[in-house]
Design a protein around this nucleic acid. Structure first.
Lengths: 342, 342
DNA sequence: ATTGACATTGCCACCGGTGGCATAATATAT
DNA sequence: ATATATTATGCCACCGGTGGCAATGTCAAT
């Protein structure tokens, strides 16, 4: 099966047409006669011919390579995203090139531009928080580089976005905790300059306010999204004179930290304290007690993103791009939350 | 800075030599006059010229793309490997294309071959368990595709391997548990057809035997490396009439499962039971109690692998390849193990 | 029969590099 | 000085496709 490599010239000769016509068949050009097309396709099939990406790229300045740009320490999230993208793009004949970066670095724009140019990527997918940097998006626009941004929140300009409605999910969490009769509810937010953190924060506290349960200042703390931050802020909250009975964390990492702090202080979860997170990463189901959290359909988002990006690349008219891609995370109730006993 | 793209022809014209000579400079050919070389390099520098990978690839059948082939559900491991490889290969001008696969599928060989051909990859890195399939390695050899295999264990044919001495590390664990005065020690192995599982298994039980502490049959169980398997086998072991006081698991995933089972059965860790794993993935430090485990220097292995692969690709003589790459995992003692109290 | 419009196909240059060989320049031997 | 080896450089074809345009064929309209 794995013969010597066979080129467009071979196919042309074997099917008795010019290579240009074969090229047209490959690219599904409409201006090819029906029977010619069938004849060529048959030969292509028969010899298992696949066009050479490099040659194609050189001639048409395409590479059939997509880039994934991220600055996110959450390996579980990254892995899920990669698998989602690959599941879609590999069947479309694209491959995925990965590119971790430092989203805060001053040369982020140049760095990403370089990345795209060096491998002539056809387009890139941006993950938070890099996806939140509008300046980067502008630069990509200026250079006519197709891209899709995965973000939390929503935007009118849906063309370039795949969105997750974290705000709504955080509101669900607020209602859930209240339904468990908690009176003293606290939240450890992520860095509020991150869009996702802000969405979750606002969704949560606004809902609380609407139920006349506005969070007092000492119950509202900004963390860094890291485990260590969860421990630190957890310790702080749990040693307050009037400690909360429920803590909602911006992500599972910090929620794990809070569990750690609670364990140190011999506070029982969920009997004396309810803890919940956001993401539903692997940790959430493994840790003891298993975390009540919010599951983001990350893989689904990644599939949408790949779909959208390829649509953008392959169509010259932007209308062809699939429409609004918004995804709804949902509450997953496990063992770290319970009725308030007081 | 980001001018119109500048090609080898521009450089040739600007520096007053032929493009062939510029090509020689780029490729560090020795047959270029010293001052010519300097002159051209200066122009290249000045105009920030980078050769086009596709054109280069088309002409020389190289792509400057490396592939990463894996069938491993451990996202943390994969992420670490990716970052390790990238840290080395990006500065050498290579990019990384990722390719999850099903290592058991009957068309693994064809699948991987296809992957390599479609994108004309210069070489690939294989991760366990795919790296353990000798048949795949043979196929790659036959097709003259450069590759490096990351494996647990050792091999005489060090050329193609980056190895981790898991056997030795497992022996350390055996000695550690014995030093804690445990008498009834159990092991949940991974699937013994995996090389890594076998190495850890043998390192552990042989060391136990050498200390006259051979494991009785009922304390030796084969698991699947998955969390659920840890729960199931854990339950089984902990409900034996004469249950063990220490359980060594082939990986952290299963160790987490055992902790879960222990929690269900109200067995206190580490007071009544010591549990330990292998890998030191994120979970290990986050779970409560934090796991005693063995840390594999995964990133280091990945860097070695990239280094070795690129050396193979770039040199025609195999001697240039860096020598023996063996890495030594080490014991990390945390809170899930303690002195046997009986 | 002639012409024009349109659909189909082919020809050739070109994308940006590298390989092989010829040629020019310089050093060494006779 | 001349022949000979050695080094440095240039020329041209080629890698495997695509773009633009010309050529050919078909059919309806004049």
């Amino acid at each position: 099966m794995a013969n010597e490599k066979i080129t467009i010239n071979d196919i042309a000769r074997l099917s008795g047409v010019s290579k240009r016509t074969v090229s047209r068949v490959i690219n599904q050009s409409p201006k090819v006669g029906e029977q010619t097309k069938l004849k060529v396709e048959k030969i292509i099939e028969q010899y298992n011919y696949v066009p050479d990406k490099q040659a194609r790229g050189l001639a048409s300045s395409r590479s059939y390579l997509l880039g994934l740009v991220y600055d996110n320490p959450d390996a579980l999230y990254i892995d899920e995203v990669q698998r989602g993208i690959l599941s879609f793009c590999s069947k479309k004949g694209y491959e995925l090139v990965v590119h971790p970066c430092r989203y805060k670095s001053t040369d982020l724009n140049d760095n990403v531009l370089d990345f795209v140019r060096r491998s002539k990527l056809d387009g890139i997918i941006l993950l938070p928080p890099a996806s939140e940097v509008d300046d980067l998006a502008s630069t990509l626009d200026e250079n006519a580089i197709p891209y899709v941004r995965m973000v939390s929140g929503y935007s009118e300009k849906t063309d370039d976005f795949v969105m997750s409605n974290d705000r709504h999910a955080a509101a669900d969490m607020a209602r859930f905790l209240v339904s468990l009769k908690h009176q003293k509810i606290s939240m450890i937010t992520g860095p509020l300059n991150y869009r996702s953190s802000k969405e979750r924060y606002e969704g949560f506290i606004h809902t609380m306010e609407n139920m006349d349960r506005a969070l007092p200042d000492q119950y509202l703390i900004e963390g860094t999204n890291l485990y260590e931050s969860g421990i630190e802020k957890g310790r702080h909250l749990l040693t307050l004179d009037d400690r909360p009975t429920a803590i909602f964390c911006n992500n599972d990492e910090m929620a794990s930290g809070v569990l750690k702090a609670a364990a140190e202080l011999h506070i029982k979860v969920p009997e004396q304290l309810s803890v919940c997170g956001f993401d539903d990463n692997l940790l959430a189901s493994r840790i003891i007690p298993a975390l009540t959290t919010i599951k983001r359909p990350v893989r689904q988002m990644a599939v949408y993103a790949a779909n959208k990006l390829i649509a953008k690349i392959e169509s010259n008219n932007p209308q062809a791009v699939i429409q609004n891609c918004t995804v709804h995370p949902e509450l997953v109730i496990r063992d770290s939350t319970g009725f308030n006993e007081n």
